[in-house]
Design a protein around this nucleic acid. Structure first.
Length: 163
DNA sequence: AATCTGATTGTTCAC
DNA sequence: GTGAACAATCAGATT
């Protein structure tokens, strides 16, 4: 079977979770795609590429995974949790998703900062383009780090009434 | 050995 | 505005 089954998920007959979004194929550049573990060293082209913040669904999944595995220690398939999580997620009400969304929202705020830094880097990179060898990365952060900037305040906003 | 896949949804980036 | 890709996970599958 040569793996790579074009669409393993699309097997719906009685259950049709999603139309046909072909989502599994994130792309195959040639090397690791998104494994979070770029230890091999060469998977990530960018030194500090900010990983996308987990969506509310992922946040929920993190918690769900624990519960799911706890009650299903035998299940070791990621797809199992994914499916179960997906169904449960849709089963949640806006109010229940609220906390997850709130967290996701914060993640996004943080991500925005990373993006700014990342963008800045890209800008510098483009300057040299092929000369990334670097040589010149002398002061990458000459004006940073000083201990002047800090921000850490959890803002919890709650105004949800919903049904 | 190391990389890749599956499966979910949401978000984010690029054009 | 739309599309495409990717975020975690974990163990198997593949190269």
């Amino acid at each position: 079977m040569k793996g790579a089954k074009g669409k393993g998920a699309a097997k719906k007959d009685s259950l049709k979770p999603v139309d046909d979004k072909k989502v599994g194929k994130r792309k195959a550049p040639a090397k690791a795609v998104g494994k979070s573990k770029a230890k091999a060293g060469k998977a990530a082209k960018d030194p500090n590429k900010p990983k996308r913040p987990p969506s509310a669904f992922f946040v929920f999944l993190e918690d769900f995974r624990k519960t799911f595995k706890k009650e299903n220690p035998n299940v070791k398939a990621v797809s199992a949790v994914g499916k179960a999580g997906g169904e449960k997620w849709k089963s949640l009400s806006a109010a229940e998703k609220a906390p997850y969304e709130a967290k996701a929202a914060k993640r996004k705020t943080d991500y925005e900062k990373l993006m700014t830094a990342y963008n800045k880097k890209q800008e510098s990179m483009v300057e040299d383009e092929e000369s990334e060898k670097s040589k010149s990365e002398v002061d990458e952060e000459s004006g940073q780090e000083g201990g002047d900037d800090e921000e850490d305040e959890e803002e919890e906003d709650d105004e949800e009434d919903d049904d």
